[in-house]
Computed example of a mutant assay.
Amino acid sequence: MRTLIFKYLEGSATDSEKAELLQWLRKKENRIVFHSYKLEWRKGLKNGQITVGGEESWNRLQEKLWQKSYNRWQESLKTQQFFRYAAIFFFALSIGTAVWHFSGQSSRNIQETTTSVIAENGQISKIELPDGSLVWLNSGSRISYNNFYAEQNRQVELSGEAYFDVAKNAELPLVVNCNDLYVRVLGTKFNVAAYSWEESIDVVLEEGTVELVNPVAKTTFSEMESGQRAQFSKENSALQVNDVNTSRFTAWKEGMINIYDQPLKDVVKRLEIRYNQEFIYDKEIEDFRYTFTIENERLEEIIRVMEQITPVKAIQQNDVIELKIDEEKMRKVDR
């Protein structure tokens, strides 16, 4: 495999050889072997052993193979299950910074590219990042990172909710960018909920320690300990930290959602991304509060529970479910 890997790195591998390499790299142990050969190849570059036009060929090949690898990997993982667990390995990104070593040139000569993984409504995705860290991406969420990840940085941008099982690297902390808040870790297990429509960013720490950092001042708001939940207000930057049962906030990885004292407007958002169903509702009921657990229940069962808890009724309008005040129930309450 050494010869094929060197041909790939030099840009001289055929399409069939690239396909063979892509298939081989899907196994984690093979990517470790690939990395060792990559280092050997780099040493050769430092000694001036570089083919004519090699740098131009490498830049061209990097972009081409990144897209081809992504497309092939995605196609091979399509499924009709309600929860789609996608293990995505962008091996081209893990070797992307090899160009940095060409003729002593700096990384500013490499064009930055971004990889984004999206869990559509009604889906959960499981992702392995180039450094071996695992990420569970909840429905309606997106995570992004650039082609320098695991080489020069471990920075990811998150919109939505994700659970992280971070590979340890004392020299390169992993940083989760939630716009209003950065979460910085070395190696740990934690959950971040940073949906754009929510008023706060939620961080729940299962193992290890994490730092909550002000993205503007670069100062630390707080250092969390295992078993804690931090709620960061987007409006005034207020931070509240308390001890919790972490499983209540991470059970969504197994398909369970815990609704705890949440207003109807937030519950509806959860239902929309869980069931891929559009809702509308009257403003007068948006603050009705709910506490219940969703596991394998159908949407109509959840709506029935909401109608029992509060004086609301659901009406199907084409593809949209409308939630309205139930006047008859309200009259009974007022008696």
Rank of each mutant, 00 (worst) to 15 (best):
T3M: 05
I5L: 06
K7C: 03
G11V: 09
D15W: 11
D15A: 15
E17I: 00
L21R: 08
L21W: 07
Q23G: 11
L25K: 02
K28Q: 15
E29A: 14
N30L: 07
N30E: 10
S36A: 06
L45A: 07
N47F: 08
Q49W: 13
I50P: 03
I50Q: 13
R60T: 07
R60D: 04
L61F: 09
L61C: 08
Q62R: 13
L65A: 08
R72M: 12
R72V: 14
L77W: 06
I88R: 10
F89R: 14
F91R: 08
F91Y: 14
V99R: 02
H101A: 00
F102E: 10
Q105P: 00
Q105E: 15
S106I: 00
S107L: 02
R108L: 06
E112N: 05
E112M: 09
T114N: 13
T115G: 11
S116E: 15
N121W: 04
G122A: 03
G122M: 05
G122V: 06
L129F: 06
S133R: 11
S144K: 13
Y149H: 02
A150F: 08
N153S: 11
Q155L: 13
S159A: 12
G160L: 13
N169H: 12
N177Q: 09
D180I: 00
Y182H: 15
V183Q: 08
V183H: 07
G187Y: 11
F190I: 04
V192E: 06
A193S: 09
E198I: 01
E211S: 14
N214A: 00
M224A: 11
E225G: 12
A230F: 00
Q231V: 00
Q231G: 00
S233Q: 01
K234W: 05
N236L: 00
D243I: 06
V244C: 06
T246Q: 02
R248L: 14
T250R: 01
W252Y: 01
M256S: 00
I257W: 08
L264W: 12
V267C: 09
N276K: 12
F279E: 09
I280L: 14
Y281M: 02
D282T: 10
F288S: 10
F288D: 13
Y290W: 09
Y290S: 09
T291D: 11
T291I: 11
T293E: 09
E301K: 15
E301C: 11
I303T: 05
M306E: 07
Q308A: 09
K313C: 01
A314P: 01
Q317S: 10
Q317I: 12
L323N: 11
K324V: 11
E327R: 14
E328Y: 10
